[in-house]
Every structure is written in structure tokens, then in C-alpha cells.
Nucleic acid binder design. Structure first.
Lengths: 136, 136
DNA sequence: CTAATTGTAGTAAGAGTTATTACAATTAGA
DNA sequence: TCTAATTGTAATAACTCTTACTACAATTAG
């Protein structure tokens, strides 16, 4: 991955988890991450689609966690933001007349799945709750 | 990662491993991957720096493996081509006045290292030799 | 009614990726 | 020695992705 979405979403969720009873505005959250509030609103929109967050419009609006922080794992977050494979992409048209070219994409894609599952395994046991405990 | 370098380098090494006694030209290799020969020459240049490949210029030139294919693991290849972390990048300037912003980059970077090592662990037991056995 | 806030479209700057052209340097073999 | 094939590498272009930012309609509390 070559973006900050995992970091941004994890930061947003951490802040929400620290104040589970307050409606926090996108401007306030953006001020902690020091990024543009529009980015925060876009990520909050995907977090709503996940069912993790509820958002209220208008004055005194903002967002809140809808799910206990021990029910969200870092693996869940990774699944939500992942947009590329750990080992990158396969080449589009390897030559089918070559013994290697003919089969390499099958082999690589199998490997990509295996590595993806390995990463999920390493993230599954870590919850948002345990991640947030480190901040005071 | 968001590029094809792992796939390309693995393809190049696989082809070299299949014909360990021949000098294979970048054009020939490029024809199997169906990418531009200049890309292949660039990757061959990094493979020479690794000490994995020897290249001969001029007419009848080309490249050959310099190391037995059971001494190169997919983890070695990943280390060579990796240019981003599995979980992406941290945000550049989280707010130090916020308890989360103050420490999140340390936490995330520790996590990134842990995931990197997990991926290496999953790739270490796979050699180029075993990978190449699948092609005929 | 007012002020604060979300939702979202549109645009722009910058970085990274791949393909491609071009050509000097090198080398085997006739 | 000459020729043809090949590597090494710089330069450029097209394309995609990422982030920042502006703008503004829609919503809502007080």
C-alpha cells in the first residue's frame, strides 16, 4: 500500500474510541491528524457503511462509535482500506507460449492470497481497544 | 506495493533458473514477460548488484544465474523490490497536543515492522528452486 | 433565523509507474 | 578489421493514484 488510509482510519477510530459518548466533529478529528477535514469526512463515510460509526448532521453534529472497540480488529481495518497486494501486481500478459509465462500468474496469485491471509492472521488478535490503550 | 517489480523479478529469475547454462538476452526474457526490454535490463542491473546474476555485453551477450536457485528465497526477492509497507504510510504531522496524535506514529511504525517480519517469515521457506518446479 | 456541521463534487499539484526512443559502449565472429 | 547483436542508461511521455483544497447545498440545534 502506498497511501495513508490505514493510518488515517486507525487514528479516527482511536479518537472516537477514547471519547465514546461525545459527538466529535470532522474538523476536530482533522486537527488531531493534521489533515484536511474533507478527507476525514470521506473516511467517516466509509466507516458508516461498515456500521462502525454513526454520524449526525447539522449544528452540534459529529460522529460516534456504534460498536464496542473490542469488536473491531486491525484486520477488519486492513480489509476495509486495502487497495493493493503486499507483493504488488502481476504482469498483464505473460507469454502463453513460454512455460514460465503460461503459469506464473496463477502461481503468483495463489501466493498473494497466502500472504494476505498471513497478514490478516497477524492483525486479527489486535483489537482497536488494545491499540487505544497505549494512548494517554 | 503497487507495482509489478516482484512479479517481474521473479519471472526473470525463474527463466534464468530454467536454463542455468545459457546466456539469455534481455529481449528474449522481455518476450516471455511481454514487457519492454529496457525494464528487464534495469531489473537485471539490480540483480547483478545483488550478486545473483552475471551479465555479458555485446554480441552473444546475455545473463545467467550466478547462485543456485535453492539459495534464493522469495523473502530475498521481496527485500530487494519492496518500496512500501504493507499497511501503507503514517500521516506526516499528527498533532502532538493530542494524546492519540502524540504517540500514534510510534505505535504504527512498530506495527509495520511486525507485519514486515511476518511476511518475511511466510516467504522465507520458499526458494526460487521450489517456485520454478511448478513450470514445465 | 442563524450558525455550525455533514456530504460530496470538482479541480489541481505532485509522486510513482511503465513504455518507449535513442544512442554510446561493448563484444563475438566472419 | 568490420558488422551485427547486445547491454547500459538517460530522457521523455502518458497514465494513474494520492492528497489537499474550494465550494456549496442540505441539515439541524438552539
Amino acid at each position: 500500500m502506498n497511501n495513508t488510509r490505514f493510518a488515517t482510519v486507525t487514528h479516527i477510530l482511536s479518537i472516537l474510541a477514547k471519547s465514546p459518548d461525545e459527538w466529535l466533529s470532522s474538523d476536530w478529528i482533522a486537527g488531531s491528524i493534521q489533515i484536511n477535514p474533507v478527507i476525514v469526512r470521506k473516511e467517516l463515510s466509509t466507516l458508516q457503511q461498515q456500521g462502525w460509526v454513526i454520524t449526525r448532521k447539522g449544528k452540534e453534529g459529529g460522529s460516534k462509535l456504534l460498536v464496542p472497540s473490542n469488536e473491531i480488529t486491525l484486520a477488519d481495518i486492513y480489509k476495509t482500506v486495502k487497495n493493493s497486494d503486499v507483493l504488488g501486481k502481476v504482469n498483464l500478459n505473460p507469454n502463453p507460449k513460454c512455460p514460465v509465462g503460461k503459469d506464473i500468474n496463477n502461481e503468483l496469485e495463489g501466493l498473494f492470497v497466502e500472504i494476505y491471509e498471513t497478514v490478516l492472521g497477524a492483525l486479527e488478535h489486535r483489537t482497536l481497544e488494545s491499540f487505544v490503550k497505549k494512548f494517554n
